[in-house]
Write a protein that binds this DNA or RNA. Structure first.
Length: 480
RNA sequence: GCGCCCAUCGUCUAGCGGUCCAGGACGUCGCCCUUUCACGGCGAAAACACGGGUUCGAUUCCCGUUGGGCGCGCCA
């Protein structure tokens, strides 16, 4: 249960995305786990951009990652490290390996290797580099071919990854071939760069997706060749799409910016994400502090999970209702630039509108599961007379609603003290006199004042809108 | 093809040999509350993939089958 880190060792975790696209939900969860673990043990959480592939790394992708992490509240310690900028150090390490005999030059061309793999596949053999230059004399090198540098990996015995999540996973060394350390252009490969950087950055715990499990074994061979200590590893299962297939851009693999635009709260998304793969008994909800205090590696499951928007939405609704009105206001206003129709509302949000919004907030947040729904529900506050009515509202007005409004209007005009209690008293009396249920009278009022069949309590709506505006909206529908 | 990983309600999961005719959450379906919609409350249906072992006893341990996933690049 308890999982104290080795004493005297400060925990250092890292999130190491490659900037070849947006920050997707799986990456966000990996970042969250690393962040939680570091916070839990009062350690350090580092960010390293794995941009050694110059062809595919882009600045917009780096920005998207930074923006996504920031929005999610996963603040890293220190400056983000660019892996590319450390290329000189990577080469230096490879020189050492060359000198010690742990690495060698391979002059096989890409085409040659391609043919080799095709042949292996055709013959039903494992697809691996066959070591053709492993023991060949460099004097045999073909002219004009720039070599890659490969690791001279052990071919006998086995490599055991002692993983905090997956347990001890054994790979026969003969299954692992001589991976490329340095490309023919002198640039480091991912395999080499992660090892060197994790080591240099003092990373103590590597928490990443289990698609890296095989890589872990290969990386261990590099650590061993270098005589370096191997960090604690934890390979967490992947998140799949709703249909169980791999999470791809086709299904639901949205960038975290999309979740912001969809109106989710960072705290809710974090809570949803942490429960995908990690659990603590029956517990569903965690505040950030509780999450940090409870998080551990041993409670991470090993089976993949599916992303379920419906549950995320429910969870988000819980967070919104639990949030104090003032904070929710701030969250909503801050999100306006990213929400559909948000900028327009932001433009109309003067001081008096803010007051109205704040007053309506309690009734509004009860029926919204996302900020988008919250904004939508608040729409009537910002609407201009005469209001456009939706389908259901029109029906309510048409089917007897108009008559009630006409009859009610003078009575409401007579209300001097415009409070929800006062208007409610008038409407209740009216309903009683006509032997009608309150709902029959309340609905036309709602339709006329909000243009909808759904809204916060109608008497609260009247109060928030104010005497003038309410009466005006009512009159618009009563007399048409 | 080869290697590795996984397998409890539709979904996320609890379970770490007997307390399980399997618990919680979302969703679904009823009922209640009610001024609509929500919220809330109560209740229901809903799962240990299959086959062998081990054991006095398996959801829990082992093996196999099936099904999924990941990896097998001079990508990360």
């Amino acid at each position: 249960m308890k999982e104290p880190p080795p004493p005297m060792t400060k925990v250092v975790t890292r999130f190491a995305p490659s900037p070849t696209g947006f920050l997707h939900i799986g990456g966000a969860r990996t970042a969250l786990f690393n962040w939680l673990y570091a916070r839990r043990f009062d350690g350090t959480f580092l960010l390293r951009i794995e941009d050694t592939d110059r062809e595919r790394s882009t600045k917009p992708a780096v920005d998207a990652i930074i923006d996504g992490l920031t929005w999610l509240g996963l603040k890293w310690d220190g400056e983000a490290v660019s892996q590319f900028e450390r290329a000189a150090r990577h080469r230096e390490v490879v020189d050492e390996m060359l000198a010690s005999g742990n690495a060698y030059r391979c002059y096989a061309t890409p085409q040659e290797l391609q043919e080799m793999r095709e042949k292996q596949r055709a013959e039903g053999k494992p697809m691996r580099y066959d070591g053709r230059w492993r023991d060949r004399d460099p004097s045999e090198a073909p002219p004009g071919v720039a070599p890659v540098i490969r690791l001279r990996a052990r071919q006998d015995g086995e490599t055991i990854v002692d993983d905090k999540v997956q347990g001890k996973v054994t790979f026969a060394n003969k299954e692992l071939d001589d991976l490329v350390l340095l490309r023919s252009d002198g640039g480091p490969t991912y395999m080499l760069a992660v090892v060197v950087d994790d080591h240099d950055m003092g990373v103590t715990h590597i928490i990443r997706g289990d698609d890296h499990l095989t890589n872990a074994a290969r990386q261990m061979q590099i650590y061993q060749a270098l005589g370096w200590d191997i960090p604690v590893m934890a390979h967490i299962p992947l998140i799949h799409g709703p249909d169980g297939a791999k999470l791809s851009k086709r299904h639901g693999a949205l960038g975290v910016d999309a979740y912001r635009a969809l109106g989710y709260l960072p705290a809710a998304l974090r809570n949803y994400l942490v429960r995908l793969g990690w659990s603590q008994g029956d517990r569903e909800f965690f505040s950030t502090e509780e999450m940090i205090a409870a998080f551990d590696l041993s409670s991470i499951g090993r089976s993949p999970s599916r992303f379920d928007f419906v549950k995320l939405e429910n969870m988000n609704g819980h967070f919104m209702r639990a949030m104090p009105d003032g904070e929710l206001m701030v969250a909503l206003i801050d999100s306006l630039p990213y929400l559909n129709g948000g900028p327009e509302i932001a433009a109309k949000l003067d001081e008096s509108m803010r007051v109205k919004l704040a007053a309506a907030m309690p009734g509004l947040k009860e029926r919204a599961k996302t900020l988008v729904e919250l904004l939508d529900g608040a729409g009537f506050l910002f609407a201009q007379r005469p209001l456009g009515l939706d389908e259901r509202a029109r029906e309510i007005i048409a089917n007897g609603g108009r008559e009630h409004l006409a009859a009610l209007l003078p009575r409401l005009r007579a209300v001097a003290d415009w409070t929800s209690a006062a208007t409610e008293a008038v409407v209740r009396d009216y309903a009683l006199e006509h032997g009608a249920k309150l709902g029959q009278i309340a609905q036309p009022l709602r339709a006329a004042t909000t243009g909808r069949a759904t809204s916060p309590g109608i008497f609260d709506v009247l109060a928030v809108l104010g005497r003038e505006e309410s009466l005006g909206r009512l009159a618009d529908q009563a007399t048409r």
